[in-house]
Amino acid sequence: MISIRNIVKQYAGQRALDDVSIEVAGGTVFGLLGPNGAGKTSLIRIINQITAPDSGEVLINGERLHSHHIGKIGYLPEERGLYKKMEIGEQILYLARLKGLSADEARKRARYWFERLEIQAWWNKRIEDLSKGMQQKAQFVATVIHQPELLILDEPFSGFDPVNAELIKNEILELNRQGTTIIFSTHRMESVEELCDSIALLNKSHKILEGKVKDIRNRYRDNTFAVDFTGNLPTPDSDAPFNTVANAENDGIGKLTLKIKPEFTTNDVLGYLLPKVSIMRMEEVVPTMNEIFIQTVSKSN
């Protein structure tokens, strides 16, 4: 769907993006991650043709980025807002027409979305008279009204209350089911694991990690397991098939975190533990995206 190739963007004295290449497959949800100032917004602005790269190119469906692609992209910026004094319906129509919709088509789609998000009664209200949640729904409608093939959402849930965040999330997923490719920029990792198929991690203008979420997490597995048990576990000796990472007790239940030694398997661990304690649960500890994020970023710093 979109390939970003060797993008370099220089602002006076500092490099915002340094030879960044990213592939986003059509129909997926792609997470663009990174700490503040990593270059996410710069990259997004380049895809939206708000700024142009110093070198490198962006291809959409194999075509070089061109102004006629504007109508295919929907963009929800992190710094977002609407005209405060303008009526909400009129405003959505204006933004839709700027994206190239005809007046009739814009009206039809706006009606559809207003009903879907249950804000149709507020069509003639000014933005400043609406609640925050209502404004955000309107903002979302403005982003998706022209049925973009590519939806770029920069911190989409910031400022949403949990109910509205859930509602918008479901709308995003529904659009994705219908085939919309979604690029999702955030530093809130819990939503990444839930939503994203693939991610790219930027830090200090470089891409430092890219791939499918599943693959990345698998790559970061290091044979760490958590075991819940009851009974008295003597301190494991050096013959044990694992190294103890942590051992704690909570309400009479022992919680052991262990790392299996390379030549052993989970069965060896169970064989070692079974005669000593009664095991209630054993589970692999796969690092969360948050941990991977922190680990990768601090390593690259």
Binding site: I50, G81, L95, Q139, A142, T143
Partner: peptide
């Protein structure tokens, strides 16, 4: 903050 929406 509407400006970024418009200039996209």
């Amino acid at each position: 903050r509407i400006v970024e929406v418009v200039i996209s």
